[in-house]
């Protein structure tokens, strides 16, 4: 009986507290929003933004080359070294940027007709089949796909075998920047096809009919109606292809040649040397490039197409 009495005693007070709390939430709606959003937002800020901030802060420190201990004195030495004349870092950044740009343009050119066919011409079944084929590579491991290309492009590989069969001479594509360009273009193609498809599919048929009614032929309709409406999709896709290439370091390692060092490779090497400050400083460069790129992409309406 004593136990029951205790339960009766806490019951109403608990209920009262709950009522008071819901009253508080009703009077102050922002409190409810904060309670709901707080935990995930806090975790996001600490884990994601916090990690980036720490990285950025440490880029102003240096490492004692003898003990590998981090010296917490503020200095711009790392950034000065990156931009100093005769240093390889700007060259490495430029190469990374060039390949990323080339891959983006290549993927846009390859993906557009495919996405156009899928969105506007293909029947239901063909479209499903094409979707599976575009997505299929994404279901296998990244490494498997890169190694497959290594096997294709190598001296005794499928490419030279096919060329020799046609009576053409060997091509030494493996371990060059060309190989990197090909492999990256292949790897990120699905990320370009899908946003363009989404953008093209959203164009109402009535627009095209209106264009035809006003006397525009196919080419004119394509240039004046389809292309401007599909452009945000292309830009959205380019965010993926550009950023993914910019941050990669495995493909240069596996199919790159003697002059194929990416920003990522350099960062990885310096982390291995326990020189985190310099790695952090160099890693800020792609971050800045991506930042500028995203601002441009937003101008072009890419975020509505995502």
């Amino acid at each position: 009986m004593a136990v029951d009495a205790g339960a009766f005693a806490t019951g109403p007070s608990l209920r009262r507290a709950r009522l008071r709390l819901s009253g508080l939430f009703w009077r102050r709606p922002w409190l409810k929003a904060a309670g709901l959003l707080g935990p995930p937002l806090g975790a996001f800020l600490i884990v994601y933004v916090g990690a980036l901030a720490i990285l950025f802060i440490s880029s102003f420190w240096t490492v004692n080359s003898f003990t590998s201990a981090i010296e917490h004195t503020w200095t711009l030495a790392n950034y000065r070294l990156i931009f100093a004349g005769g240093q390889p870092y700007l060259h490495i950044a430029a190469l990374t940027l060039e390949i990323a740009a080339a891959v983006t343009v290549t993927d846009a050119i390859l993906a557009f007709p495919l996405a156009f066919f899928m969105a506007r011409l293909a029947g239901k079944r063909t479209r499903a089949l094409l979707f599976v084929m575009v997505l299929l590579p994404l279901w296998s491991s990244y490494l498997v796909r890169v190694y497959a290309w290594q096997a294709i492009l190598s001296h005794n590989g499928a490419l030279n075998w096919a060329l020799n069969g046609l009576g053409l001479p060997d091509q030494n594509v493996a371990y060059t920047n060309t190989a990197m360009w090909i492999v990256f273009s292949y790897l990120w193609l699905p990320f370009m096809v899908l946003p363009i498809y989404a953008a093209l599919e959203r164009i109402p048929d009535s627009y095209l009919e209106a264009s035809a009614d006003l006397g525009a032929r196919g080419v004119r309709t394509f240039r004046a109606v389809i292309l401007p409406l599909a452009l945000p999709g292309v830009v959205a896709g380019s965010i993926f292809t550009f950023c993914l290439t910019l941050g990669d370091y495995i493909t240069p390692l596996l199919v790159g040649g003697p002059s194929s060092q990416f920003i990522g490779n350099t960062v990885y090497r310096y982390i291995g040397e326990a020189n985190v400050p310099f790695a952090a400083a160099f890693a800020t460069i792609p971050l800045a490039i991506v930042g500028v790129y995203l601002l441009l992409a937003r101008r072009l309406g890419a975020f509505e197409a995502l």
Binding site: Q150, A151, S154, H155, N156, G157, N172, A174, Y175, L253, L254, G256, G257, P258, S259
Partner: peptide, 22 residues
């Protein structure tokens, strides 16, 4: 550097390059 096909990173990388004739 211009004489090189590549710099090898892991022992298996070098094996692959010899095996493939590169």
């Amino acid at each position: 550097k211009p004489l090189l096909k590549r710099y090898w990173n892991y022992a298996t990388d070098e094996d692959t390059s010899f095996k493939n004739g590169d």
